[in-house]
Design a protein around this nucleic acid. Structure first.
Lengths: 224, 224
DNA sequence: ACCTGAACACCGTTCAAGT
DNA sequence: ACCTGAACACCGTTCAAGT
């Protein structure tokens, strides 16, 4: 009953969750679709275009994804600060929802309907709260930069600094080593860093909210 | 006179500037070094490890790179706000100094001497201004997230949304299309976005400084 | 210690030909 | 319109063998 473009994108996203971006290969994808190698190129111009469509589908998640359990209840807050915080949490949630989501979006995003819709929503949301367009755009750009940069580091840590992703040797299973924990540094050369390492594990949700609070407080200060 | 590891890394960085990350191939590298394919693996465990070393070398640029001509003179400012702004500008300068610098660092960074040194410097700098370690760490994390996210988008625009990077067809020369200018959107569906597109081109240096100012102002507000 | 030469197991993409 | 089958031009990595 004839494969469609959206089936290809959906299957590619499922495959992404299973194997990660480095192992997302056109061959694995066509195998999963039960189809021959070349059939892919009837539905998609190139792998790059496919990745672009996948990235757009990931940011589509901002419209459905909840914030990632912040502790405090965002979204219930009034004013532009609470609303943009909610928006940022939803963007993070969307990126976090898929393996290598941030890397996919940051490197391959081809602005499609979902992306443009999300940007428009963010802009509209801030304008409705009385911000000038230029201010809204610049602030929105700053927020998305922060979110993408943050989740990029977050997911990189989860993959084990993205090392260990060798090509074809060894066993085929999980090959990431120490998830998240960096090797301790020499306290003599890096005193502050070592001390920080020795202290609390730093909850990522909390760190994210804290950085976001810096941004919104900064805009608030400029507005007053 | 026997190639050394640092020669390999240096040559790889030069090659990166010439062809970009997608075309940085071990074969092109060994050709440039005037050596056979397999020789590379005497000096380096894998391509991943090489990319990690390259990324570390790029962030080493924070110690030498000047801020990217902001208009206002940073670094001359006193207080932690001016100093962290200067640090952020130097990090952006280091990422911007090499083609695909942000993508390289965000995806492949293997914390080496340069990276650890930069982090330690940032931490020390803020502690010296009276910040608590936890505050310094969280703020530093927020700033680096912002910088990496920002430059990632900046360099993606320069490569033409990273599309057009096909494998082996067509002419071998430059294949990026419209550098930086996105196609105009439908003003009916995306009114705010369209209006913003119609307005000023938005100087990246200025946008970067503005977002950074939000962050520092936010921390300042929390401290008082 | 450092490199060659040749192999191995992969890739993305194209394109005639089928239905 | 949609897919097959087979080819093409690439990849990263390994490893005996040379010097």
């Amino acid at each position: 009953m004839a494969l469609h473009r959206e089936d290809v994108v959906r299957a590619a996203l499922e495959l992404l969750d299973e194997v990660g971006l480095d192992r997302l290969t056109t061959r694995a994808l066509t195998d999963r679709l039960g189809v021959q190698r070349g059939a892919l190129y009837w539905h998609v111009r190139s792998k790059q275009e496919l990745l672009g469509a996948m990235a757009d589908a990931v940011v589509a998640g901002v419209f459905t994804a909840p914030g990632t359990g912040d502790g405090a209840d965002n979204g219930a807050q009034a004013g532009w600060a609470g609303r943009t915080a909610d928006f940022a949490h939803r963007l993070r949630g969307a990126l976090l929802a898929r393996r290598d989501g941030a890397r996919l979006v940051s490197a391959h995003l081809a602005p499609g309907a979902a992306t443009l819709g999300a940007v428009e929503e963010g802009l509209a949301l801030m304008r409705a709260q009385g911000l000038a367009l230029a201010q809204a755009a610049m602030f929105g750009h700053a927020v998305t930069s922060y979110v993408i940069g943050f989740v990029l580091q977050e997911q990189a840590a989860h993959t084990g600094t993205e090392a260990g992703a060798g090509a074809g040797s060894g066993a085929d299973g999980d090959d990431r080593a120490d998830a998240g924990t960096a090797p301790p540094v020499d306290p003599r050369r890096y005193p502050h860093l070592a001390q920080w390492q020795a202290e609390q594990p730093a909850d990522p949700d909390q760190a994210f909210s804290a950085g976001l609070a810096f941004l919104t407080a900064g805009l608030a200060a400029q507005l007053s």
